[in-house]
Every structure is written in C-alpha cells, then in structure tokens.
Design a protein around this nucleic acid. Structure first.
Lengths: 159, 159
DNA sequence: AGCAATTTAATTGTATACAATACACTGGAA
DNA sequence: TTCCAGTGTATTGTATACAATTAAATTGCT
C-alpha cells in the first residue's frame, strides 16, 4: 500500500479547490450582505475602485471573465446603483463602466467590513504566501496543458 | 513598504482559488469531452461508481451540493444514459440513483482518459499533499467563521 | 389511531460561467 | 470610397450553485 494513486490524489486536490472556492464565495457573500454584493460583483468593484472607467473588455481581462458573464453582472450593479454603463463616443463598440458617487462614497465602508471579516479567518501571511505560490504553479500547469491540443477540440470522439 | 495589506493578500488568495477552480473545471471538461461529462457530473459519477445506488441526499453530502443543484444535474445524467432515478419503495420521499449498464461499462474508459490527462499536469505527490493540507486549514477556518453569528443572517443592515 | 414535527425531493428565483453566435462598428486595404 | 477583416459587446443556450419555499411522506408522541 506504499503506492498512491495519482489519479485519485489529483481529483481530491481539484475537489478541495472547488470546495474551497465555494466556501470563499459564501464567506464573501455573507460578509458583503450589508451591501448586497456577491463575490464576483465585489471583485469587479475592486478593480473599478482601483481604476475607473474601464471597458467591459478591460475588466474582463483582469477578472478572467467574458462579456457573457460580465454584461448581466454589470447590469445588476448598475441597477443597484454602483456603476453606470456608458457607450464610448470615440468607439461605439465599447461600453465604459464608471463608478457612481455612491460607489466612491461606500468604498471605505466595504473595505472596512471586509477587513473585519478577514481578521476572523486568522491566517498568517506565510500560509497565504505559500498557498498562492503553489496555486500559481498549478494554474500555470493547467494553462499549459489546455494550450496543447491533446485536450482541445480535435480530441478523439467516443460515441 | 515592509507592511503588507492583509485584506488584499487574502483577496488575492481567494481570487487564486476561484481562478484555479475555474481552470480545473475547464481542464476536466476538456478531458471528459469524449464522454460529454462536465466536472460536477464527473464527480457525481465517481461517487456513484464507488457505491451505488445512493439517494440524492447521500450524494449531496459527499459532493457538498443540495438538491437544487443535483436534481437537474441528475436529470441530465439520466437523459444521457448514465444513471436512472428510481423513487424508493420503502420511503417514497427518497429517489435512488442507480448506475446504468453503460455507466458500468464505460467506467474504466473514463478512468483511463482522466489518468492520461492528469499525467500531463505533471504534479508531484508532495506538491499535491502540501496544497491539500493547506486547503484543509483554510476550509476549516471558513467553516468555523461562517458558523459564528458575526457573518450570518442577523448581521447589521446597511441601507 | 391521530397528529405534529421532521425529513427528503422538487421547484422557483436569482446569480454566475462560458461557448457560440449575432451584430454593430472601426480601421485599413484595394 | 467601398469592402472586409478584426474587435467589442450583447444575446442565446446550457450548466452550475444555492436560498427559500413547497409538497409529500415518515416518524414519534400521545
């Protein structure tokens, strides 16, 4: 029994990450409940607080999300008063996402709330650093593999 | 600049996990394309291959998913011929998920395909072990925190 | 037996995700 | 100038997720 099945280990790692991702999502959703923001909405706001306005495309690059996800998300943020969506005068294909005054005003409140909630997680910088380093490796492997054609479109079909 | 903002680091860790989860999802989806399975469908099959039949509830405990997610997922698996959904005779509230003959037949093909694709990831057992250990800690923290009322329902509202 | 409390699935509503497509628009080539 | 390739956003269709509610059935209690 010295041998470990790498297939299973890998699945467990994937499942752990999948599960952790869902838990984090839930954590942020709860933490942000006073503001009615979800985690994806929050990280969109984070990017915009850093530098707005941005086009949907620019935001998507930072968040690794496409317009199919962002367009409805941003419409919800607009409806809730966080952003405005303005079609660019220069290039009418682009939509610029601006922050509203409310968003600017509430930024520090949101930061403070997140800061408080994160304190509860009680994680050391070392832990966080180490995980992030390992995650970078994993993500790089995943990117590399998916760029090789072994796993892309022209894969052998099983019917 | 020796100080690091823990708020941001944490967000980066969360984002890293969120992003890795999406990439893994994509990886498995590509790997399983010959079988038309998604990652959540695949892990449902994994549990069932290990021990079937199971009720929706039992499956949900293993996968940390509720019936709102599983019911439609299992209906899709049924439509594609992997499982059958049979209401229990003993307790008619329960639905038992059975494997079809096709599912049993294809199991080794699926395992083999996954094994091949995972080899490409080229990750050492040490890397995997270390990540999983750290993820357990993080998930435990997230569980603990969400069980404290600081972040649950009766949170102060901001209007 | 009779009924309240509990359990279990399914349903409904909201919010992501992402592939594929549609569509408008821009900039450049002919 | 007209046409076209490329770009950026929106839309459509499919698949998760999960909270909240509903509905049906069982269990436990009297």
């Amino acid at each position: 029994m010295a041998d470990v099945n790498p297939v299973l280990l890998d699945e467990q790692l994937c499942f752990s990450i999948y599960s952790a991702s869902k838990k984090f999502n839930h954590f942020y959703q709860s933490a942000l409940a006073p503001f009615g923001l979800t985690y994806p909405q929050y990280i969109a706001m984070l990017v915009l607080w850093e530098k707005a306005p941005l086009t949907v495309h620019q935001l998507g690059e930072r968040l690794e999300l496409d317009s199919g996800t962002l367009t409805p998300l941003l419409k919800r943020l607009e409806k809730q008063g966080w952003v405005t969506r303005v079609r660019s005068q220069i290039d009418e294909r682009q939509v610029l996402i601006h922050l509203t005054e409310m968003a600017t005003t509430k930024r520090d409140e949101v930061y403070s709330r997140i800061g408080q909630c994160q304190t509860l997680l009680d994680m050391s910088s070392e832990e966080i650093d180490s995980m992030m380093t390992e995650l970078v490796t994993v993500k790089h492997q995943l990117d590399t593999v998916s760029n090789e054609r072994l796993i892309t479109k022209e894969v052998d079909k099983v019917n």
